[in-house]
């Protein structure tokens, strides 16, 4: 049933208008500003060509942010997907204990990044932090959670993935439900063990779920701001933190736009490559 053109237009207009004004226009502006020298305040600014981008290429704070954000994304994406799949496979049963475990994995998802960061800041204090109290009780030396940049990345990754793991697990659990039971039954008759069932049946058939989850975890990783900002005093910057700092502490608005544009391009390129690669592995639907 087609809806008449006139009413279709009236129905689509408000949504499209909001999307256009508050999503598309800002992105176009971001593009535009990144080729200017605007400070974000003054009335005058001029076209700057690719100067912002050539400066970025030799800006150490930006390159550091890029490097650490990439490492952070890699760590979190690995944790999300490896643990997400394992937990989903383990919890793919019905019992009271299994249901309880599902709820616990999922509960932190509803917490704000601020609350998550507060809790983990407390847990990971050098002195008096819960984790070090436990570690010391076993006679082991305290862990320096914020001792180096890599240590900070690991610490923040644990907090972030603790909170987000529920999403990924749930998507994998839903994907597991789409695998036909007959495949497992047939392989049992053929004498396949648990491990070979996992690698030959479960993993290949989870490919669509893996695709969404890897793309999602990479996008989330690259746009990281909240936890890193709240848990550390700024020793390690993410790309977003770097850009916000440039825009508001240094009044380098166009430069900040250029940083955001780089982030944007990275996310899109990785997602497209990822989708392309994973499509080849996905089992085509019959």
């Amino acid at each position: 049933m087609r809806i008449a053109k006139k009413s279709a237009f009236v129905f689509a207009l408000p949504g499209i208008l909001i999307y256009f004004v508050f999503m598309v226009v800002p992105i176009l502006l971001c593009f535009y500003y990144s080729f200017t020298n605007w400070d974000g305040i003054s009335d005058h600014y001029r076209f700057n060509g690719i100067k912002n981008f050539t400066e970025l290429a030799s800006d150490d704070t930006f390159l550091d942010a890029l490097k650490y954000t990439a490492i952070f994304t890699l760590i979190t994406a690995l944790i999300y997907n490896v643990f997400g799949i394992l937990i989903a496979v383990i919890l793919d049963k019905k019992s009271k204990v299994h249901n309880f475990a599902k709820s616990t994995v999922f509960l932190p998802v509803v917490l704000s990044s601020v609350v998550v960061s507060f809790i983990w800041s407390y847990m990971t204090q050098m002195d008096g932090g819960i984790i070090n109290l436990v570690v010391n009780a076993f006679g082991l030396p305290s862990i320096h959670f914020y001792g180096s940049k890599m240590a900070i990345l690991y610490t923040v990754s644990v907090a972030v993935t603790w909170a987000g793991l529920g999403y990924f697990t749930m998507v994998y659990m839903a994907a597991l439900k789409t695998i036909p039971e007959e495949l497992y039954e047939a392989s049992t008759i053929d004498g396949a063990g648990k491990t070979s069932k996992f690698f030959r049946i479960t993993l290949p058939l989870l490919a669509p779920g893996i695709t969404i989850n890897t793309v999602l975890s990479i996008v989330w990783g690259f746009k990281q701001y909240d936890h890193m900002k709240i848990m550390t005093p700024g020793t390690v910057q993410s790309i977003t933190m770097n850009s916000i700092e440039r825009a508001f502490n240094y009044n380098m608005f166009s430069y900040a736009s250029a940083i955001i544009l780089v982030l944007f391009v990275i996310v899109i390129v990785i997602s497209v490559i990822q989708l392309g690669i994973m499509k080849r592995f996905e089992v085509s639907e019959g």
């Binding site: 949504g15 508050f22 999503m23 800002p26 992105i27 971001c30 746009k223 701001y225 900040a256 944007f264």
Partner: peptide, 24 residues
């Protein structure tokens, strides 16, 4: 086409919209 145009918003990281949004 309109659907694809709207779905493209999925790929956009929120901070990418935030900074220029302050100006709009």
């Amino acid at each position: 086409y309109m659907y694809v145009f709207v779905l493209a918003g999925f790929m956009v990281p929120a901070p990418a919209v935030l900074i220029p949004s302050l100006k709009t």
